[in-house]
């Protein structure tokens, strides 16, 4: 069958004004030449094809793009990739794989702490970061610390269950072992 449309394709002009940088993503050094406008989020998704990190609002209003930069959680949509040369980036792909889940990923699975799964990478990256943040012990404390990640499916109760389960397990592991154990 013939095309519905006349083919009118013109050559593009790419490459102008790009910046060469080195980034470390999930422990791997990446050397790239990128458009200075490109956010870390779009760099991860469009260039590295690490699509686990999601775009929900592109303006720091939903948390779906949460990653770790030098060990701290941030919104990758509000970070210019080129400004993070030399930084250590960790994404959901750097946390675990379907066959080797991080304890937080396992807890999300066990507690059904998601529905559609779209905000989940960001939720988990926040939840993992929370473990080393000065967050209080109560459910309410965790709710506040997790409020930068919108879950429109509303799986919040199960997200809290998953995080508190991991925190309890961590405390057990950290507790001194009884003699002879």
């Amino acid at each position: 069958m013939t095309s519905l449309f006349d083919a009118a394709v013109t050559a593009s002009d790419a490459g102008e004004g790009r910046i060469a940088i080195k980034l470390r993503v999930n422990g791997q050094e990446r050397e790239v030449s990128i458009d200075p406008r490109m956010t870390l989020l779009d760099y991860l998704r469009d260039v590295l094809h690490l699509t686990g990190t999601k775009k929900g609002c592109d303006h720091g209003q939903c948390g779906a793009c949460t990653i770790h930069i030098n060990g701290r959680r941030m919104n990758s949509c509000l970070a210019l990739a080129a400004a993070h040369a030399g930084d250590e980036i960790t994404t959901i792909e750097g946390l675990g794989t379907p066959g080797r889940l991080h304890p937080m990923q396992a807890a999300f699975l066990e507690n059904d702490a998601y529905q559609c799964g779209y905000c989940t990478s960001g939720q988990i990256m926040s939840a993992v970061a929370l473990l080393s943040e000065p967050c209080g012990a109560s459910d309410d404390d965790v709710r506040e610390f997790m409020s930068g990640n919108i879950c429109r499916c509303g799986a919040y109760p199960n997200i809290i269950r998953a995080i508190q389960q991991v925190r309890r397990d961590q405390q057990k592991d950290a507790a001194p072992q009884p003699a002879g154990a």
Partner: peptide, 9 residues
């Protein structure tokens, strides 16, 4: 103000 992610940046 904001969220932990934003305050970290």
């Amino acid at each position: 103000g904001a969220s932990t992610q934003l305050r970290n940046a």
